[in-house]
């Protein structure tokens, strides 16, 4: 099928090869209505309830980085996947795969961070599992979390509801998480302003959906970054998008690191940001909710959904030219979450 039938790091990047892996290997084996929507989590019906269900594994390297650690990431990541389905996350599971010889003190620090993140998000970690493997079989510690929550009544958050003319909002600055992890990995000194943005977004999302239940879609630009998230949405909805480069918030320090290392902030992973696509008559309402919340202070309208070209995202640059904003190919930085 691809690249000589072996898995490469790029298959885990969240970009083009990840999409191909899902489409060609996983989806045919598991195909069903809830899965085929290919959202961050699945929306499923149980008798008497409309639920969202999601799972994610965390392999970030290093385990501790500026402003966070793998524990906080493992809770926030799954909470956010549920929130992006328009759900109110309630319960989480946590599975640990630990390398023989791992310091108990580090494990205690990580689970305490998970407890704090769960408390902030208002979710309970109600079940778990631990496996220990021989030295070298994993790199320190991997965590899997799964979560479940009820879909907020009166909302229908789905790429199917994206229409030309809707506004595209971004909740804050790009690239903070990726740069914080990268700095931790390569021992770069960063200005104190650059820390991971990893945060539970369910509280903010609930406020937005309460104020504007007609929101078409929510999506957090994690692996693959903003560019990949927008492309996925444009493809799923069969619409075009036009993004204004000058409106995209990026912290000056992050932009400087990107310039230096040749990274593009549009493709960098975020763990506390999300996109909102909404009818223009609700834009101001959503923006004001975002701006009042600590996790949405730097939110901005960054573009608009267009009818054509279907499945493509354009970027109007700061000098006024327009170019294609493509999905991530390859991997800027493996093991970012």
């Amino acid at each position: 099928m691809m690249n000589g039938d072996r898995i490469t790091l790029a298959h885990g990047s969240g970009g083009k090869l990840s999409a191909a892996l899902v489409k060609e290997v996983f989806a045919p084996a598991f195909s069903n209505g809830a899965l085929n929507e290919l959202h961050d989590g699945a929306r499923v019906r149980m008798p008497g309830a409309q639920l969202a269900f999601s799972t994610d594994s965390y392999v970030v390297k290093p385990l501790f980085f500026a402003g966070g650690d793998i524990g906080r990431l493992a809770v926030c990541g799954t909470v956010n996947d549920l929130a992006m389905c328009g759900a109110d996350p309630a319960y989480l599971s946590a599975g640990f795969i630990i390398e023989e010889g791992f310091p108990v003190a580090d494990l205690a620090r990580i689970v305490s961070s998970m407890g704090a993140a769960a408390a902030e998000a208002g979710v309970a970690i109600v079940t778990g599992d631990t496996k220990v493997v021989e030295k070298g079989a994993v790199d320190g510690l991997y965590i899997n979390t799964a979560g479940i929550g009820a879909v907020l009544p009166g909302t229908d958050v789905s790429p199917r509801r994206i229409r030309p003319g809707q506004d595209i909002l971004l909740s804050g600055t790009l690239g903070d998480h990726a740069v914080a992890v990268m700095a931790g990995r390569y021992g770069l000194e960063l200005p104190p302003a650059v820390v991971t943005d990893c945060a539970p977004l369910n509280g903010l999302v609930k406020e937005i959906l309460t104020a504007a239940p007609t929101v078409a879609v929510l999506r957090d630009p994690t692996r693959g970054g903003l560019a990949t998230a927008l492309n996925e949405l444009a493809l799923q909805a069969g619409v075009g998008m036009m993004i204004e480069e000058g409106t995209i918030p990026v912290r000056r320090e992050v932009a400087a690191v990107c310039d230096l290392l040749g990274f593009d902030s549009l493709y960098l992973a975020n763990e506390g940001k999300f996109l909102v696509i909404v009818e223009p008559n609700y834009t101001e309402i959503v923006l004001s909710v975002l701006h009042r919340h600590p996790y949405g202070r730097e939110a901005a309208v960054i573009g608009r959904v267009t009818a054509a070209p279907a499945g493509q995202v354009g970027l109007r640059t700061i000098v006024g030219g327009v170019r294609l904003l493509d999905m991530l190919v390859g991997d800027q930085l493996p093991r970012i979450c």
Binding site: M2, G240, L324, V329
Partner: peptide, 28 residues
């Protein structure tokens, strides 16, 4: 993701740029 020629491999190659950024004249 599966280049045949060198101009598609290098980020600075003309083919990679045409592919990644579109032909340069946006048909929107």
């Amino acid at each position: 993701e599966n280049p045949v020629g060198s101009c598609m491999v290098s980020a600075e190659g003309a083919c990679a740029a045409w592919y990644k950024y579109g032909s340069g004249r946006w048909q929107g």
